[in-house]
Design a protein around this nucleic acid. Structure first.
Length: 480
DNA sequence: TTTTGAGTTGTTCGA
DNA sequence: GTCGAACAACTCAAA
């Protein structure tokens, strides 16, 4: 009798190019695909509201994919170890297969489960597949992790290429018989009253199919002008694959090989493809860093930042969160985030710079807000991104680099499409004053129907003054 | 071991 | 309007 194998799904919600599932299928043993919602295990990094919405729909999509292949996804809720043990008792499974994850809590859980299952005579087998390179594969000549992106990525590019993606196993023997499965709706992942995410399905299709569509659309359109276009929030030049990648609905190896294929057939796009791959490189870099420095979510990578004089500013924080800072591009970004669960990458940098440098609020406060509101909330990317902007991260932005939200708007949203869309009360303002309405003559404000302080806020801080304060604070850090 | 070159994404100032 | 330099010094990676 072949003992069944449990395939324990985590943030790898796909059926193709999944090494653990391929290995399980290859044994010929019956396979039980299972997802366990464990709200305790991640501690403070339990998925936020937007991410839970995505998870709901992603699990629905995975369930359909597995059903299409003849199996049934088992959903459970509760303590991961306890639920796995129950499932093992119910089915007589002798092995549990899974994909490896890199969040400190996830890695600790793997280790704990491995030991606990081992004691019960069950083997936990862990497979890669969620990164292009495993952290252990990449180190500098001293055998230490890279701390600077460029040499890190150059090194990666010299490695043997990531393996080609593999299709869904042709024949998987699914375990027959009906196992208890919690109805998806009972997991409580989806908002009900009110359903603030009702309109999100217009723009997002969680699951592998939706990911594949996004990739195809990118390879046919966005990549043409990726290097430059990716900086403009009104253009559709970015992949928008981040939430799909976070939940593992598409594999990084698939992206790598699709992009390389594009470069091979359309050599003109070589530099665009290289740029796209290097963005994948940042994802790798962040995950490797979090693996090597598990405190990255809470502690500054550069230790001297432990003494940075962060300010407490509840009013400022609230204005930032609600998109009411009086800086149109910042407000546009924060409103895009709130309404869609997403924000364009460049705008993320600008709003993050505003929070940490103009308002001097701790990057962790911003990281928490992003965590709860972003569909693609990911601990490695989020922690590294915020630390980079704040200046405390690995290979971080120098402290004197303070984004000027007015200038950034004029450069990257020159026609003001992005701002007018998200800050409609300024829609009638001419380009000249769209980013700095407070400079506009009264007649122009009047004819645009803008009354600063009532229809749209006055700036909550003065850019030049805030910049000087930030430089002073960072300068003191250097000398202190 | 010492040395050398380099480092995602910017802004401001003055010529 | 455009351009180059200054902004600071430090750490990292590799020769």
């Amino acid at each position: 009798m072949n003992a069944p194998i449990i395939y324990w799904y985590r943030q790898d919600l796909r059926t193709h190019d999944l090494p653990g599932l391929i290995a399980a299928a290859a044994t010929g043993h019956p396979v039980i695909p299972c997802y366990i919602l464990d709200d305790q295990a991640p501690g403070e990094w339990s998925p936020g509201g937007a991410s839970r919405w995505w998870l709901h729909h992603s699990l629905a999509a995975l369930g359909r994919d597995i059903a299409g292949a003849g199996g049934t996804l088992v959903l459970r809720s509760g303590n991961t170890g306890a639920e796995l043990q129950k499932l093992i008792q119910e089915t007589g499974a002798a092995e549990v297969y899974c994909s490896r994850h890199y969040e400190p809590w996830a890695a600790a859980l793997e280790k704990q489960l491995h030991d606990d299952l081992d004691a019960a005579g069950v083997t936990l087998k862990r497979y890669g597949g969620n990164l292009l390179f495993e952290p252990e594969q990449i180190s500098n000549q001293s055998g230490l992790p890279f701390k600077v992106f460029t040499p890190f990525w150059k090194h990666c590019l010299k490695m043997p290429e990531p393996a080609a993606p593999r299709p869904v196993p042709e024949s998987i023997t699914w375990l027959q018989g009906v196992l208890h499965s919690v109805p998806l709706d009972d997991l409580g992942l989806r908002p009900r009253q009110p359903d603030w995410a009702a309109a999100w399905t217009d723009q997002w299709q969680p699951g592998s199919q939706g990911a594949a569509k996004k990739l195809q659309s990118f390879l046919h359109n966005g990549i043409e002008n990726y290097s430059e276009g990716r900086n403009h929030p009104a253009l559709d030049c970015t992949t928008r694959l981040s939430p799909h990648l976070h939940y593992g609905e598409i594999s990084p190896r698939q992206l790598w090989h699709s992009a390389r294929q594009t470069a091979a057939t359309r050599p003109r796009l070589d530099t665009q493809v290289a740029k796209f791959l290097s963005e994948m490189g940042w994802r790798e870099f962040s995950h490797h860093l979090l693996h090597h420095f598990p405190e990255l979510d809470a502690q500054p990578f550069k230790e001297r930042f432990a003494h940075f004089p962060w300010m407490s500013n509840d009013q400022g924080l609230q204005a930032w969160q609600r998109g009411q800072t009086g800086y149109p591009l910042v407000d546009a970004g924060m409103r895009e985030l709130w309404h869609t669960g997403y924000m364009h990458n460049r705008v993320r940098m600008i709003v993050a710079s505003f929070l940490t440098k103009h308002l001097l609020i701790h990057w962790r406060v911003g990281a928490k807000w992003f965590w709860d509101t972003l569909l693609d909330a990911n601990l490695a990317n989020n922690s590294c991104g915020w630390q980079w902007v704040a200046g405390s991260g690995a290979d971080a932005s120098p402290y004197f680099r303070i984004f000027n939200p007015i200038l950034q708007g004029q450069k990257f949203d020159a026609q003001g499409e992005y701002i007018r869309h998200w800050v409609p009360e300024l829609a009638a303002m001419p380009d000249r004053y769209l980013n700095n309405p407070w400079d506009a003559p009264a007649a122009i404000l009047d004819s645009a129907g803008v009354h600063l302080g009532s229809t749209y806020p006055l700036p909550i801080v003065d850019h030049t003054q805030a910049r000087e304060s930030a430089l002073a604070a960072y300068g003191a850090l250097k000398n202190g």
